[in-house]
Design a protein around this nucleic acid. Structure first.
Lengths: 197, 197
DNA sequence: GACTCATATGACACAAAGTGAATATATATT
DNA sequence: AATATATATTCACTTTGTGTCATATGAGTC
């Protein structure tokens, strides 16, 4: 249901084509909601059916015509109504955390590499948010304040994951585990085999 | 694809029925991956078809028979293989953060109430994790170390969201916004109407 | 001259994920 | 007697998301 709302939000600052929205999703709004263009076009049709958006065709020569969607009065009411419903908090749902629940059944070496790779991605995201965050600093525009707050919590999320990774790598290092439980190579299982228990 | 792996993880410490797994999901493994029982039964069938689990029927009198699933050698390889793939980091995807991107199009009062409600849920989750976390403190068992680490990052997640909420409420308080931009009641839109712009 | 890239839209098939209800039966509790 | 709980599974359905194909063309690169 909410991709529709995310699209409506993208339309609040003016008419846009599906193409425009897809690009914006790769950039700002889409930090917190993502979709491929095929999904966006599908949902735009539904918004139109529902009366929450209207479209007008802009004739172009050379390129295919642009179809610009605008939010309607009903669409604006839909947004307000949406904001009045309590939103679900995002639950943690992560392969990686499930793996941490059964360390003796997985490849520990690969998990360590995975932590490092994930830290890198968290730091990349961090940098991306930081640039937008800094640009909004000090603004007193209501929308800017909201975006600033959203980016703040996103940055905390990335930073804390990255820092946690350092601690995890320490506690899962061969030496740390070796001191506790003796040399441990039991997790290296040859491909296609390795029944234990 | 990963519900299957989460189920396999649940099976690593012994044979279980679909019913058992559903209960365990409500408690521990399911902190980081959730599913209804109907989904679990469906995935158990697929695991069996795939040769990653086998089942045996335990005849009971009075109640329906229990069908116990056990992980196979191939299932264990599947887990190891899975841990060798880089896992996707969980991206932020949240209605609420999208709303923060368009504060001037939503009901700000409802948003404030929403923040408070969410803080409560974050604190509830926190308490749930804390109990499990404390119980694992100091253990040198490999699985316990992993679970401890998983709960640690989960607790950080909940704590940071809750604390961010305090700052957000301050910055979005009527007085804070009033000082910056003058009295602001533009977001109070009567139900069913309220076209602006 | 061939190639890729950016622009622009949309249909279609498919897989994954999630919900909700129906069907059984026995025991324990109120 | 009615209700809840524990046990166990299946099916129909919806939503969400991915990936690919098809169409069209101008601009820039090798």
């Amino acid at each position: 249901m909410s991709l529709q709302h995310a699209i409506l939000v993208a339309l609040t600052d003016g008419a846009k084509s599906g193409y425009d929205i897809a690009k914006q999703f790769d950039d700002s709004t889409g930090f917190f909601w993502r979709a491929r263009h095929s999904q966006i076009y599908r949902e735009l049709s539904k918004l139109k059916d529902r009366g929450w958006a209207i479209s007008e065709e802009i004739v172009q020569s050379g390129k295919p015509n642009r179809i610009l969607f605008s939010i309607t009065k009903a669409g604006r009411s839909g947004l307000v109504e949406w904001s009045r419903q309590p939103s679900d908090v995002q639950e943690l749902k992560d392969d990686f955390l499930v793996q941490l629940y059964a360390l003796d059944s997985i490849d520990l070496k690969a998990l360590r590499a995975n932590i490092i790779a994930r830290q890198e991605r968290h730091r990349d995201h961090m940098a991306r948010y930081q640039a937008k965050y800094d640009a909004l600093e000090g603004s007193s525009d209501l929308n800017d304040i909201g975006r600033h707050l959203a980016l703040e919590v996103a940055m905390i999320y990335e930073r804390e994951w990255a820092e946690w990774g350092d601690r995890a790598l320490e506690r899962l290092s061969p030496s740390a585990l070796g001191e506790l439980a003796g040399a441990d190579t039991s997790n290296i299982v040859p491909i296609g085999g390795g029944e234990r228990r």
